[in-house]
């Protein structure tokens, strides 16, 4: 019976984490930047409308509320994608560890 190679497992786990998190960040970075830029532009536009007297306080409140809710949705998406990435990392690590144990005991754990 061969020993479990802990060094190799740790190395495989590190490579898996880096690959998954890197891919995930690359995936949503342009999206996040684009949405934050739009939010800033909208806030600036609303400030100008208020200063020029085009909209009153009530309308400003309603339109700011829309911005706030929309930003919440964007942040929920970013958090959600982060959780999906964490989930992928956990499952990849379980796969590596169980794979190593399976090799050791002869395929008992589900992969």
């Amino acid at each position: 019976m061969t020993n479990i190679d802990m060094q190799q497992i740790i190395k495989d786990c590190t490579v898996a984490v880096k690959s998954i998190l890197g891919k995930s960040w690359k995936q949503f970075k342009p999206y996040a930047e684009h949405e934050f830029k739009k939010f800033t532009e909208s806030a600036e536009f609303l400030a100008k409308l208020k200063l020029s007297g085009n909209i009153d306080d009530e309308e400003l409140d309603m339109r700011l509320k829309m911005q706030e809710l929309s930003l919440k949705n964007v942040l929920l998406t970013i958090a959600g994608i982060g959780i999906v990435a964490a989930q992928d990392v956990i499952n990849a690590l379980l796969n590596i560890v169980y794979g190593a144990i399976n090799a050791f005991v002869g395929g008992v754990l589900p992969l």
């Binding site: 339109r63 829309m66 911005q67 930003l71």
Partner: peptide
């Protein structure tokens, strides 16, 4: 700004 808010939310 309202169009942006709706589109961002749906996106």
């Amino acid at each position: 700004d309202m169009q942006n808010a709706v589109n961002s939310s749906l996106n």
